[in-house]
């Protein structure tokens, strides 16, 4: 197993910390997360990869404070007291895998303004409109979410999270089900966010995106951390990836060919 990246600079406060995190769903025959130790420094962008059922989405729910657990600290605060949870949710954004779970208001604009209103942001409606315009979604503002295509829903869901201006952005399959153009827009937007000092953690099967954007990869399998290290190393390790039902992404293979 690769050595886990715990912290680049010892003085830096970890953005997210899971220490010996174990979680079992009601009726589950094995733990969804099994004694997991993970440190996410604020300065690094982390991709969580792994096979289906590996525990990626469950881990994100813990890191967002939505499954409160004593083993998790978020931005230095324990993630199980009510007082902390309200503060934590103000600073963490979570994009859900299925946008239909996330878009519940009658119109796109109201949905994007939902978070800013709850967080008492100044001029929430304006913030929502600006976020939509930034993502070239301004013309959808007045549409009901059920009138949108799957890709549009996905982008609007991302806008709804970004409108809350989070310090940490957790993404569950941010590019799943998108056409190539929309996928590119999401990747560009994430690259922009990374430049704006937002810590991005993404659970994904899109290893090409991981290769392009993320400097660190955590491989989760059966709720355990099988590998944790620089993305260039892990994405090039065929044996490791194959053992977890994955394969080396095409972009890594192309890089290899170019170098030859």
């Amino acid at each position: 197993m690769n050595e886990p990246i715990t912290d680049d600079s010892p003085n830096e406060q970890p953005a997210l910390l899971a220490h010996e995190l174990t979680y079992r769903y009601h009726g589950g025959n094995r733990p969804a997360l099994d004694n997991l130790h993970l440190v996410v420094p604020a300065s690094r962008h982390t991709a969580i990869i792994g096979p289906n059922g590996g525990g990626k989405s469950t881990l994100l729910l813990h890191l967002a404070g939505l499954l409160p657990n004593r083993s998790v600290q978020i931005l230095g605060r324990p993630a199980w007291t009510k007082k902390n949870l309200a503060w934590i949710r103000r600073h963490i954004g979570l994009l859900f895998q299925n946008p239909d779970d996330q878009l519940f208001m009658p119109t796109v604009l109201e949905d994007v303004a939902f978070g800013p209103l709850n967080f008492d942001m100044h001029d929430a409606r304006q913030v929502a409109m600006e976020t939509l315009s930034d993502m070239e979604l301004g013309d959808l503002a007045d549409r009901p979410p059920h009138h949108l295509s799957g890709g549009e829903k996905h982008l609007v869901a991302l806008a709804a999270v970004m409108a809350c201006r989070p310090k940490i952005l957790l993404l569950d399959e941010p590019t799943a089900g998108l056409d190539p153009g929309s996928r590119r827009r999401v990747i560009q937007r994430l690259a922009w966010l990374m430049e704006q000092s937002v810590t991005v953690v993404a659970a994904t099967h899109d290893l090409d995106m991981v290769h392009e954007l993320f400097d660190r990869v955590v491989l989760l399998d059966q709720g355990r951390c099988r590998a944790d290290g620089p993305s260039a190393e892990i994405l090039a390790n065929n044996d490791l990836l194959e053992a977890s039902n994955m394969e080396i992404p095409l972009s890594v293979l192309l890089d290899r060919c170019r170098k030859r």
């Binding site: 967002a64 309200a86 859900f96 299925n98 519940f104 967080f119 809350c164």
Partner: peptide, 18 residues
Amino acid sequence: RVYTAMLARGYDGTTRSD
């Protein structure tokens, strides 16, 4: 899942509107 998504964006039982 919808309720979890609402919590993630700061829902605390009060519907705020603008």
